[in-house]
Simulated scan of single mutants.
Amino acid sequence: MPTTVDWFFDVISPFAYLQLEQFDALQQANDIVIRPRPLVLGALLHHWGQKGPAEITSKRVFTYRHALFRAQQLGIPFRMPPAHPFNPIKALRLTIAMGGSLDAVRAVFRHIWRDGNDVASPEGFAALCEAAGFAEGVTAVEQPAVKDVLRAHTDAAIALGVFGVPTLVHDGELFWGEDATDMFLQSLRAGWLSTPEAQRVSTLPVGIQRG
């Protein structure tokens, strides 16, 4: 039986796009089924009391450079949208309204991060729906059922302890970031999280806390 893994993402993240572009090979080589779970990163950050990378000027610049470098390193086509951060809510809902498959998610991500398009303006979002072959998405994203699914995924992520995107979740364990894919695979194949040192660092006491 294939291993089923939940993938929590927000389309606002370039690293989620980069990880997504590697999923076909990942699934085929490892007998994995990945279930996309869109969430609202802003709600996640608010819950944990964190700032987003784009809210710290120097981190914002580094993040964009790092995403570009990583894309070039991986050979994945990449172009930043015209402004970032942007409001991702309707694009997230669109992935749900289109059925929530990896293909639907990929179509949305590629329009933003491969082709570098705006999706936050009404015109930009309508163009996204057209490009994804789902023109009715302009109205479909306003359906209460679609909104409820996005809210449910966000709440489920918080309940699991998810603190950032992208995050793979398997058996309650979190693997955050595109660069944690290998760590996930090592844990899946060889039980890396059960090794003595991984167990030790997972239970270290807190030495000091900020007031």
Rank of each mutant, 00 (worst) to 15 (best):
A145S: 11
P144L: 07
D148V: 11
V146P: 09
G172Y: 03
A157P: 10
A156N: 14
V169M: 02
E178P: 07
L160D: 05
G161Y: 07
R151M: 12
H170I: 00
V146Q: 10
A159C: 10
A157E: 11
L168V: 02
F175Q: 00
L160T: 04
V162I: 08
T154L: 13
G172P: 06
A152Y: 11
G164I: 02
G177S: 05
L174M: 02
V169C: 01
K147R: 12
T167V: 07
V165E: 04
L160K: 10
G164Y: 03
G172L: 02
A156W: 11
E173Q: 05
R151P: 08
L150C: 14
P166L: 01
G177F: 05
W176N: 01
I158V: 15
F175T: 00
F175D: 00
F175V: 00
V169E: 02
E173L: 00
K147P: 06
L174Q: 00
G172H: 05
G172T: 03
K147V: 10
T154S: 15
H170Y: 06
V165K: 05
L160R: 09
V165I: 08
F163N: 04
I158S: 09
V162R: 05
V149G: 10
D155G: 09
F163D: 02
P166S: 02
D171C: 05
R151V: 14
P144M: 07
A145F: 08
F175G: 00
Q143V: 07
F163M: 06
F163Q: 05
H153G: 11
E173T: 02
G161V: 07
I158T: 13
D155T: 13
V162T: 06
H170V: 01
Q143S: 08
L160M: 14
D155A: 15
P144T: 08
A157R: 13
A159E: 15
T167M: 03
V169R: 03
L150S: 14
L160Q: 11
T167F: 04
H153M: 15
F175L: 00
V149D: 10
P166M: 03
A152F: 12
G164V: 01
A157L: 15
V169F: 03
V165T: 11
D171K: 08
A156I: 12
T154M: 13
T154P: 10
D148F: 09
G164F: 01
F163L: 06
V162C: 05
